[in-house]
Amino acid sequence: MLKFPVILLLFVYLCMDCLLGEVASERENDVCHRRLGMEDGTIQDLDITSSSVATLVGIWWPWYARLNGDFAWLPHLYLTTASWIQVDLKELKTVTGVITQGYDGPHQQYWITTYHILYLDTSLRWDIIRDEESATTFIGNTDAAGQKTNMFDRPIVTRLIRLQPATWDGLPALRMELLGCDFIGPIGPAEVASPASNSPPYADTRTGQPTSSAQASTASKNGASIGRTVAAGVATLIIKILYGSLAPSWHW
């Protein structure tokens, strides 16, 4: 006959096994694949910025890059190389994937066919999602209206994330959504797609210069990054006031 301590240990083991199985099942059932707020507006307009914008007519601003929206983001036609759109999540999030969509206007249809994903890692360094040896090239859309979902091989933990178009059909117009969940620390190797220690630093797309953790930390300490963010926010707010009211009349 089994003694009571043995039965108790067996019961605890079975309960723990069920609990772990339930957690794994929740992960598989998209608990960390929820939409982070581009489409529903949870992510605010001023938290969506870009390297450039095509025109000042009001339909290509980065805050129009919302999944299923009427408009889209489009970089300046002469600055499409190394262009990017950036989303500030306001706090650390676990990001697991992205949904992309092109611009499906009455007279023009544009979409991005491949792209890269950059992010500010926990060492305050801009890095790029990569395979073992090179940057990961994500396959984008095949038409303007359809949606393409790409899940990352490993989740990333970040506050700032960028999508950088690589190739496109017509023009690199984009609507998008980010997938993930709230981040609950501590940060572990499975939760952060950190660059390998022997991997070369990725160039900062704003300057073309290589970045390093030390440089990023210094920039953070002296407030340069904060200053740029504030300046960009103020400029965006002024632009929105001047041109936002014209946007509906420019829908192609």
Results as ranks from 00 to 15, higher is better:
Leu171Glu: 15
Thr114Phe: 09
Ile161Ala: 12
Ala144Asp: 15
Asn141Lys: 10
Gly180Ser: 05
Gly170Ile: 02
Gly180Asn: 08
Leu163Lys: 12
Leu160Phe: 14
Gly170Lys: 04
Tyr119Phe: 13
Thr158Pro: 13
Glu133Trp: 06
Tyr110Asn: 14
Val157His: 15
Arg175Leu: 11
Gln108Gly: 04
Arg130Ser: 06
Leu118Lys: 10
Asn141Met: 01
Asn150Arg: 08
Lys148Glu: 14
Ala166Asn: 08
Gln109Tyr: 05
Ile112Arg: 10
Phe138Pro: 05
Leu120Arg: 05
Ile112Asp: 00
Leu124Phe: 09
Asp143Ser: 05
Gln147Asp: 04
Leu178Cys: 02
Glu133Thr: 10
Ile128Glu: 06
Ile117Asp: 09
Arg175Gln: 10
Tyr110Phe: 13
Ala144His: 05
Ile161Glu: 09
Thr114Glu: 10
Tyr115Asp: 05
Thr149Glu: 14
Ala173Asn: 04
Thr114Asp: 00
Gln147Glu: 07
Pro172Thr: 13
Asp169Trp: 14
Asn150Met: 13
Ile117Glu: 03
Pro155Phe: 02
Asp153Ala: 14
Leu120Met: 08
Arg130Asn: 06
Glu133Leu: 09
Leu178Ile: 02
Asn150Pro: 11
Thr136Ala: 04
Glu177Trp: 07
Thr114His: 08
Ile156Arg: 07
Ile161Val: 07
Gly170Phe: 05
Lys148Phe: 12
Thr114Ser: 06
Ile129Asp: 00
Ala166Ile: 04
